Simulated scan of single mutants.
Amino acid sequence: MSEILFIDEPQEKLDEIQSLIKVVYEGFMALAMDYGYHINNVFGQSKDGKHEIYELRDSINYRIRSANLHFYLLIVRKFEIENRFAKMLKEKPTVFNGFIMGNPHFEMASDEIMAIYDSIVFHLSSCFDYLAMLTQFVFGKNPQTKLQWITLVKHCHNNKSEFANRKFVENIKKVNSEFVSKFNDYRAELIHRKKSTSFANVSWELDSGKVTTQFKCSEKIKSNLKKIIDKDLEYCISYASFELIKQTLLKISHVLNGMHDEFRENYIGHAPKMNNGGFQLITMNPETKFAESPALGSWKKFMEYKNFC
């Protein structure tokens, strides 16, 4: 049996994802600021305390952070299962012996892990529908339209659509073909047709009583995640979950990068939108003495996402 790729330093992976989340959030901050500077001066405006551009931004961030929370819970649950098995073995060393048709203890543990994994999938997949709504709100003719990702992709493939000449169109098409299309099919299958499965590899040391578990991805999972993991290798669920979260964040970043290019190339940098009697946030370029979008600082921080690729 080939070696299973697993996370041997969980805190390092948790820290890496947390760092990437912070970088991606800078991109959403920048997008909202560019919207306020170039399209609709929302600074000082609010709806029940928060303008819709910020609600949409924060909705995506909520989904991302929820997926990250479940990744943490998955790692914690794995250790809890190992402690539970160790206690069972201490009380009865033969507790796992004698099962012909599969060990129910291992199967229950696997289901616990997969329930958390499924939540990661659902949260991450919904990020792209929120991203589509945010795209429509910022760049669409009808901002209030609740656009789904699949509809946004169709618009991007239509050279007569309202998005046809936008710089981010190719980014969206690339992200969809390389990742989101297959990922959304996978989510639909989990919801409507078949649950996720993994296989528990459990080992224990008789002398110390230490138990080690590895929940191996099924061939079905590897097939559905083949855009981000190698189908010829063996992975544990925690490792696959880490890659799934990381790649989702990088794909979102690629779309945001296209939106950055749209604002830089197709909007006048020193012509902020002004409201009668309102105020506008700007930065001043010390060399040109012209006003610039306050988003530029956040965009610079956001571009650090390329260091994670």
Rank of each mutant, 00 (worst) to 15 (best):
85 F>T: 11
85 F>L: 09
86 A>T: 14
86 A>S: 15
88 M>H: 12
89 L>V: 03
89 L>D: 03
90 K>N: 12
90 K>L: 14
90 K>W: 10
92 K>V: 05
93 P>F: 02
93 P>L: 05
93 P>H: 01
94 T>W: 15
94 T>E: 13
94 T>F: 13
94 T>L: 02
94 T>V: 04
96 F>R: 00
97 N>S: 11
97 N>I: 09
98 G>S: 10
99 F>E: 03
100 I>G: 02
100 I>M: 12
100 I>Y: 13
100 I>D: 06
101 M>P: 06
102 G>V: 09
102 G>Q: 08
103 N>S: 11
103 N>H: 04
108 M>A: 11
110 S>H: 07
110 S>M: 03
111 D>N: 14
112 E>Q: 07
113 I>E: 08
114 M>L: 05
114 M>Q: 13
114 M>W: 03
116 I>G: 06
117 Y>M: 08
118 D>K: 14
118 D>H: 05
120 I>N: 05
120 I>P: 01
121 V>D: 09
121 V>Q: 08
122 F>I: 04
123 H>W: 08
123 H>I: 01
124 L>K: 00
125 S>V: 12
126 S>T: 10
127 C>P: 04
128 F>H: 07
128 F>C: 03
129 D>A: 02
130 Y>P: 00
130 Y>E: 04
130 Y>H: 09
130 Y>M: 02
130 Y>K: 12
131 L>F: 05
131 L>R: 01
132 A>P: 08
132 A>F: 04
134 L>R: 01
134 L>K: 13
134 L>F: 12
136 Q>G: 08
136 Q>D: 14
137 F>V: 02
138 V>Q: 03
138 V>K: 01
138 V>D: 02
140 G>R: 09
141 K>N: 15
142 N>P: 01
143 P>I: 02
144 Q>R: 14
145 T>Y: 09
145 T>K: 13
145 T>S: 05
145 T>P: 00
146 K>M: 14
146 K>V: 11
147 L>F: 06
147 L>T: 15
147 L>M: 14
148 Q>F: 14
150 I>W: 12
151 T>D: 12
152 L>G: 07
152 L>R: 06
153 V>K: 02
153 V>E: 00
154 K>M: 06
156 C>D: 06
156 C>K: 04
156 C>V: 09
157 H>A: 13
158 N>G: 01
158 N>L: 03
159 N>F: 14
159 N>W: 12
159 N>P: 15
160 K>T: 06
163 F>G: 12
163 F>Y: 15
164 A>K: 14
165 N>G: 09
166 R>F: 12
166 R>Q: 15
170 E>M: 04
170 E>W: 07
171 N>I: 01
171 N>V: 07
173 K>T: 11
174 K>C: 00
175 V>Q: 04
175 V>K: 02
176 N>T: 01
176 N>S: 13
178 E>M: 12
179 F>T: 00
180 V>E: 05
181 S>I: 07
181 S>E: 13
182 K>Q: 14
183 F>V: 05
184 N>K: 11
